[in-house]
């Protein structure tokens, strides 16, 4: 168990040791979320490191990391828990088979008794038969209780986050799930516990630190947002981006990192459909290293533009602006 950070700067240092370089705002947001026990709601352009922040936070604080990717139609059986029905059936069949094998002797006596009852007399054998039936009934009760044992429960992300403490729970792209799921999530987050009818209440030892991300495809309900700290994650400035590139890609030279970061920043100013995020600059620098180019030149940039721009319109616009202008120091 790591020690808890004592200030935002302390958390920033811990995050930096995992390779995630957070700016003041994000470090403060993370620190407050830890201190106040509030979920953190992150928004920002795609690729600015919202998801990476959550996993870095888990690593920095020595917590488990659980990720729940949201999508339309996500429901409790996918997010919380589900019973393993095939295993339950299998368990039932196995118990049946075992009972049949163990009770084969008693079974023949019982069968004889049943035949006797149906036929003429055979009182003693008939009594043995009823005993066998009673034994089977008791067995059925224990068997049924055994069917809803913890080992037949499949823990989905939310339950996993509650069962293990401490945990950082990432609820990724919460805007993609529908309203019903939001309401349900709110309930689980508020209590940090769930009640499973067959098993009882499962409560988290310490409530998980929840990080929610959204791409704003629809407005998330205010009731959920109100419980959260809100932070808009900005693109990093050139210096920070250089530092990120260098820490994530050890092979990258200072020169190449500066060139990539500067070019990416200029692209963000070009009013593109999808401005490149840190994720794209990392891909770009990675592509250049793979190709063995020590420098970002107009030629190598043209060859690797696909790593950083994902729309034809954007590629056209950058080419029209001139690749050379991106690279001017």
């Amino acid at each position: 168990m790591h020690e808890q950070p004592t200030s935002p700067e302390d958390l920033a240092a811990l995050l930096a040791s995992t390779g995630y370089l957070a700016d003041d705002g994000l470090a403060t947001a993370g620190y407050l979320a830890l201190r106040l026990g509030r979920p953190l709601f992150l928004e920002g352009d795609a690729g600015v490191g919202k998801t990476a922040f959550a996993s870095a936070l888990a690593q920095a604080t020595g917590a488990h990391f659980v990720r729940l990717q949201c999508y339309e139609g996500l429901d409790a059986t996918q997010a919380l828990y589900d019973w393993d029905f095939p295993r339950q059936i299998l368990h039932l069949r196995a118990a049946e088979a075992a009972a049949r094998a163990a009770g084969s002797a008693a079974g023949t006596a019982g069968a004889a008794g049943a035949a006797g009852a149906a036929g003429t007399a055979g009182t003693a054998a008939g009594a043995a038969g009823t005993d066998g039936a009673a034994g089977a009934r008791i067995d059925a009760d224990t068997l049924e209780a055994g069917l809803y044992d913890r080992r037949f429960l499949i823990a989905r992300p939310l339950l996993r986050a509650l069962e293990r403490s401490p945990t950082v729970l990432l609820v990724d792209e919460v805007d993609r799930a529908d309203d019903e799921f939001e309401a349900f999530l709110l309930e689980v987050l508020a209590d940090a516990a769930v009640t499973i009818p067959e098993l009882g209440r499962i409560a988290a030892e310490t409530p998980p630190l929840t990080v929610l991300t959204s791409n704003r495809t629809r407005e998330v309900h205010d009731a959920l947002k109100r419980r959260c700290l809100y932070h808009w994650v900005e693109h990093p400035d050139v210096d920070r981006e250089v530092a990120i590139l260098r820490s994530r890609l050890p092979e990258v030279t200072d020169r190449l990192a500066t060139q990539v970061a500067t070019a990416a920043k200029r692209m963000r100013e070009l009013d593109l459909i999808k401005p490149p995020g840190v994720a794209e600059s990392l891909d770009w620098a990675g592509a250049l290293i793979t190709l063995g180019s020590p420098d970002l030149t107009a030629g190598t940039a043209a060859a690797t533009l696909g790593a950083v721009l994902k729309y034809r319109e954007d590629t056209d616009r950058v080419r029209a602006a001139g690749l050379a202008t991106l690279l001017e120091p």
Partner: peptide, 20 residues
């Protein structure tokens, strides 16, 4: 309370705002 009075900017921004 958690951050100290010199951090009012972030304390307020993180808690009072809800959209860009």
């Amino acid at each position: 309370d958690a951050l100290g009075v010199d951090q009012v900017y972030w304390a307020g921004r993180l808690t009072l705002c809800a959209e860009p």
